[in-house]
C-alpha cells in the first residue's frame, strides 16, 4: 500500500548486525562479562579501556614508528597498565569504589587525549589519523571493492577490520570459556559470590580480582584496536561515557555470566537500532509520520527511546537476559 522499502530495511538491519560496531561492542562486552559476570567487578568505565587500547596502538605507530604487531602489543600493554592503575588502589576496598574510580578514569583518559597540553602526542581533538598505513598493507582486501555474501556486504577498507574483529571475538570467547571452566574460573566466581569465604579458604582474592580486571580490560583494549583499524582514525570524543552503558546494555541483553551472551547481545542491539532507525526514516519520508510530530533528523534520537523500552520489557519478562539462567537469578532473592 505504501512505498516503505522493507527489503532495504531488512538488508540494512542484517548488514549492521554483523558490522564493525557490532564486533567492537561484542568484544567490549566480553571484557565487561569477565569483570562483572564472572568476577563481580563493577566497571563503569569500560570505554576507558577501549580508548587506552586504541591510543596505545595508534601512538606506537605515530610516535615510535613500530610495526603493526608491536603496536597491538603496546595497546595491550597500555590496557594492562590502566587496569593496574585502577585496580591496585581500589580492589582492596568495597566494590563501589572501583565503580566510582572507573567512571572517572575513563573520562580522564578522554580529556587527557584531547587536552592541548598533550597536543604533540595525541593531536588533541583532531585525533590520530596516520597510523593506519601498516594495517592497510596487511589487508588482503581491495579497499574500494565490496566484500561479503547476501545482505552482508562491506567495503574492503572496513572488511579487514570486521574480519579481525569477529576472529578476535571468537578467540576471546574460547579463552573465556576455557578459563571459566577451570579452577581459576571457580575461584573468580567464588569471589563474586562471597569474597570473605574465598579468602577464608586460602584464596588471595585481591590478586584474582586484579587478574580479572586486567583480562577484561585487555579485551576492552582489543575492542578499541579493532575500532581504530576499522575507522582508520582515533578520535578522543568517540570515547564518551555513554558508550560504556551501551556495552552494559549489550551484556545484560545477552545475559550476564554466559560465554556467548555478549555476541548475541551485540548483534541484537545493532539489529534493533538499525531497524528502528531505518523504519522511522522510511515512515517519515512516506508521510506516515507527519513532520509536525517528527522529522528524519529526530528519528536518530527516538531510536534510543525504543531500545530503552525494549530493554525495559526484557527486564520485565526475561530479567536474566537471553542466555541467563532464571534459576540463578532466583538465588539472589533468597
Amino acid at each position: 500500500m505504501t512505498g516503505i522499502d522493507w527489503g532495504f530495511i531488512l538488508n540494512q538491519t542484517l548488514a549492521r548486525s554483523l558490522d564493525l560496531n557490532a564486533a567492537v561492542y561484542a568484544l567490549a562486552a566480553v571484557g565487561l562479562n569477565v569483570h562483572f559476570g564472572y568476577a563481580g567487578l563493577l566497571n563503569f568505565g569500560q570505554v576507558g579501556f577501549v580508548a587506552v587500547g586504541a591510543y596505545g596502538m595508534g601512538l606506537a605507530i605515530t610516535l615510535w614508528q613500530t610495526g603493526p604487531f608491536v603496536a597491538v602489543l603496546m595497546g595491550i600493554g597500555f590496557a594492562v597498565v590502566f587496569a593496574l592503575l585502577l585496580g591496585i588502589p581500589t580492589l582492596r576496598l568495597r566494590a563501589d569504589y572501583l565503580a566510582i574510580v572507573t567512571i572517572a578514569a575513563a573520562e580522564i583518559v578522554r580529556l587527557l587525549a584531547r587536552s592541548t597540553a598533550l597536543r604533540n602526542v595525541t593531536r588533541g581533538a583532531e585525533g590520530l589519523n596516520e597510523f593506519i598505513g601498516p594495517f592497510r598493507e596487511l589487508s588482503p582486501f581491495n579497499p574500494s571493492l565490496l566484500y561479503g555474501i547476501g545482505p552482508f556486504q562491506y567495503r574492503g577498507s572496513q572488511f579487514f577490520a570486521i574480519v579481525i574483529g569477529w576472529v578476535v571475538t571468537l578467540l576471546t570467547l574460547l579463552l573465556v570459556w576455557q578459563l571459566m571452566r577451570s579452577p581459576w574460573g571457580r575461584v573468580v566466581k567464588a569471589i563474586r559470590e562471597d569474597e570473605d569465604a574465598a579468602r577464608a579458604l586460602g584464596k588471595n582474592a585481591y590478586w584474582y580480582k586484579l587478574q580479572a580486571l586486567i583480562l577484561g580490560g585487555v579485551i576492552g583494549g582489543l575492542a578499541g584496536m579493532v575500532l581504530a583499524i576499522g575507522n582508520a582514525t582515533i578520535q578522543p570524543d568517540f570515547f564518551v561515557a555513554p558508550l560504556t552503558f551501551f556495552f552494559w546494555l549489550v551484556l545484560i541483553l545477552g545475559g550476564v555470566g554466559r560465554v556467548w551472551s555478549p555476541v548475541v547481545g551485540s548483534i541484537i542491539f545493532w539489529a534493533l537500532i538499525t531497524f528502528v532507525r531505518n523504519l522511522g526514516r522510511a515512515m517519515v519520508n512516506e508521510g506516515l509520520i507527519p513532520t509536525s510530530i517528527m522529522d528524519t533528523s529526530q528519528v536518530d534520537q527516538i531510536q534510543f527511546w525504543i531500545v530503552g523500552v525494549a530493554l525495559a520489557l526484557l527486564m520485565v519478562f526475561r530479567p536474566q537476559g537471553i542466555f541467563g539462567s532464571r534459576e540463578e537469578m532466583a538465588l539472589d532473592a533468597r
Partner: peptide, 29 residues
C-alpha cells in the same frame, strides 16, 4: 553462613582444596 550460592555443592567443595595448579592463570588454560 557463606555458601557460594551460585556455585554447585561440588564446586563449593572443590574450591577448598589447596595448591591447585589450575588456579593459576596460565596453567588454567
Amino acid at each position: 553462613t557463606k555458601s557460594l550460592t551460585k556455585l554447585s555443592v561440588i564446586e563449593n567443595m572443590k574450591l577448598g582444596a589447596k595448591g591447585q595448579r589450575g588456579e593459576r592463570f596460565l596453567p588454567s588454560l
